[in-house]
Amino acid sequence: MRGLVRKVIIYALAALVLVWTVVPIYWLLNMTFMHRVEMVTVPTHLYPHMPTLFNFQRVLGISASGLSGEIVPPSGHAAMIKRGLANSLILSCVVTALTLVIAMPVAYALGRLNFKHKNKILFAILGSRSYPPITVVIPFFMLYQNVGLIGTHQGLVIIYLSATVPLAAWVMMGFFSSLPRSIEQEARLDGCTRWQAFARVLLPMSWPGLAATAIISFLSVWNEFNFAFFLAGGSKATTLPPEIAGMFVLTQGSATEAAAATTLAIVPPLLLAYVFQGRIKSLNIVNPL
């Protein structure tokens, strides 16, 4: 009897967790595959009765055929959404690559070497994470205006690196510190320099941690709204999130098309989150101190 009650509770909770996690995403997809006309039917349809790629076609700048077969021209936002997608992809890749190159030695030093003031630096990393973006944006906005970095890729890369490098160093530090201590000692005994012990022996062992760190860096840039909006909003360098804001917040555009644009923005992160989940055990994020 007690075993049965326990089972019922467990499966009820599991169902609840499943609904809580999946339903919001499902609802967005539901909107994405509906025609505007179907969206406003009463009672609201819980799934698309006439599934269509109409919204995706319109936001990606392709003429689509409407419900009665008429040809509908692309959305007025299509050019911006496409440019935003390209910028997001380029910036996320560039920043991720630079972050890995810069943060790996940092993480190695933090995770495996002893030096003065290490705790203070760790504290500064945590402190940098607690800065509200809106307070960082004001000084950078003023600075960038003076040096001409407003609305440029370079400006965004700089501000993104200042956010991703400490984060990546923190995550990778946990990974490095979980590897056996004796690795470099043996490498040094075999005649490696400190640099070789790091670059030739330790780094090649670190692929799992590197992949997870790369995912975190990529997502921080791909998902970032504030800096892109305030420092590059409306410019040629703008990423996808501010363009979606233009569609969703600033103009009362089509709700189904805004849903399609948002879906484009969340599909890569969802795939990466799935990959990341498989690697999370290799990280040692909780207890790196």
Binding site: V23, L28, W222, I244, P269, A273, Y274
Partner: peptide, 20 residues
């Protein structure tokens, strides 16, 4: 499945829940 919302940005979470 539980990890999925983590990948979604805060702004997209806001949009998703507004549709809810």
């Amino acid at each position: 499945l539980v990890i999925l919302p983590w990948g979604i940005s805060t702004y997209a979470a806001a949009i998703i829940w507004r549709y809810m």
